[in-house]
Design a protein around this nucleic acid. Structure first.
Lengths: 309, 309
DNA sequence: CTGAAAGCGCTTACAG
DNA sequence: CTGAAAGCGCTTACAG
């Protein structure tokens, strides 16, 4: 009974503690969860653990929730697969206290999660208006800043390799690009917009498509670093010189961005910080009985000029 | 009672199923675990999730265990920290069915795990003689092959940036290096052996130390890619040309190895396959009542020649 | 085939 | 301060 909140004489306490020690007693986690209804477990569903952005995020999450004795259950939806729904079901059945959905298509699972009464925070999805806590970068401004940076370097025919339009950051970074074009008085050409799926391969394929155009772009804003690196692969393969023939930009600032040659100009998003923020939001939400207003935290991005522009 | 193994009339079954559907009933995972003593959860403890080798491994593990309805709980011991022990305790208390320890110092936690009766598999640690299942590459041959490759390229003053001697792959790859030197009739010089801690920064520091030597090496075998990339950083920073002034090799073949310029010659270890193998071993071990003989699986490595040698 | 009891290992009121 | 009961939501024998 020492594991509780009840007056106990010091003598008894000591005796019990000694016996616990001797027997190597460990309270059964499940019996505990059974009546407390708390599992002290949060689920992390990531789109693609192989994208270095997510391991960093996972570390941040772990750091944040560990303080509250929470442990993280990992679900890797391996690029493009529609596993998210399955994972959500699994998490619900296991009665996790909360789940953070990072990079998946959150909107489709929001309802299930709410019905099940588990806390949720969405990452990378600026699901304004939707009933969720979320943390993300300012994707609109990221798209805008990157495009403007390319324009500042003298480019006027600027393409974008955007993310899937089914995802929020995909849509919004694209909107930022479009907005910037308008603000800059540049014509918008639908041929200059090609969607990838965030992977390196899709970036290469998208660039090949852009290079096949009668009027090639002179600069490309890629919605993440992995696609930008793929685009770089394809550009070099086509015998182009970067940045003189073609300027390239990415988003995220994963380690690889500074490993490729030429080093990639990018917009840095602090992945670990996002993970920590998500964890903090989740803990708050778990702690609250009543459904308070939904919060969001907007994380700071920064432009990192390197050699590809 | 449908969730069991008992004769039930089809009519009753259908009725129950319909009601379950209506109410959105989900059996309580904990109540179940309470008497079955099975949590259908495995813990994965990795040394450093930020090293791209581990996310790949994690994915392989998830793939393998998902088939048995197991879910993975993630513990990231963030480089160098001594969290492994804490994580093991946490995993034990949560009654996971099994744990895979990847890259940590397995030997110190083996006993705790055995006493608790949880299945274990060690990864990257060829803990021969120890009572564990393990999967790893042939670290001795890796060290040997890499060193021989450097010698074939004409080098006779070959250094190594090895892993921490407290880890098995650290020790064994170093032993392979030493053995190769002996086989090749090359003198062993203790000054040419510097230990890192598997991180990029430690590789750079180690190379600086080697460059400060009166008699510099002309080639360096690094025990993993991250340290090799760090060494490359330091070499370029010192104005050296790779491979003409200094040849460099790594181990793992993470994506970054083929991103740096010059591209890194390395020994490829199939991370995802290792994860899958670990998962399979773990499932077998969990399924067995009696303690059968310990197994090991040795995974195939291969030398990938690129531009750094 | 089906119902009712006991028990998994804890926690939370309820009496002493 | 301490003991004994009831109950968390399931599963597993045990009777009908």
């Amino acid at each position: 009974v020492l594991s509780g909140n009840r007056p106990v004489s010091p003598a008894t306490r000591r005796k019990v503690e000694r016996v616990m020690e001797e027997l190597g007693y460990r309270p059964n986690f499940f019996a505990r969860a059974l009546n407390s209804k708390k599992t002290h477990t949060v689920a992390l569903i990531v789109r693609d653990l192989t994208n270095p952005f997510y391991p960093a995020l996972a570390r941040g999450l772990q750091t944040a929730v560990a303080a509250a004795d929470q442990v993280v259950m990992l679900f890797d939806a391996s690029a493009g697969s529609a596993l998210t729904r399955t994972f959500v079901d699994e998490a619900v059945q296991r009665r996790v206290d909360g789940v953070v959905v990072a990079g998946g298509e959150v909107e489709t699972v929001l309802e299930v999660l709410r019905d099940a009464g588990v806390a949720v925070v969405a990452v990378g999805s600026m699901v304004s208006g939707k009933p969720v806590d979320w943390v993300s970068a300012d994707d609109m401004r990221i798209g805008h800043d990157a495009t403007a940076h390319l324009h500042d370097a003298g480019h006027t025919r600027i393409a974008t390799i955007c993310g899937p339009p089914t995802t929020e950051p995909g849509r919004t970074r694209l909107a930022g690009y479009t907005q910037a074009l308008a603000d800059l008085g540049l014509a918008a050409d639908p041929d200059l917009i090609v969607a990838g799926d965030w992977t390196r391969e899709s970036g290469a394929a998208a660039l090949r498509q852009l290079l096949a155009l009668a009027q090639r772009p002179t600069a490309v804003f890629c919605a993440n670093d992995l696609m930008a690196i793929g685009a770089l692969d394809a550009a070099l393969e086509a015998g182009l010189s970067v940045p003189s023939d073609l300027a390239l930009m990415g988003v995220d600032d994963i380690d690889a961005a500074n490993l490729v040659r030429p080093a990639l100009t990018t917009v840095r998003i602090p992945a670990e910080e996002i993970g920590r923020a998500a964890g903090d939001l989740l803990l708050q939400r778990i702690a609250e009985e009543d459904a308070s207003a939904h919060r969001h935290v907007l994380v700071q991005h920064s432009l990192i000029p390197r050699q590809s522009t």
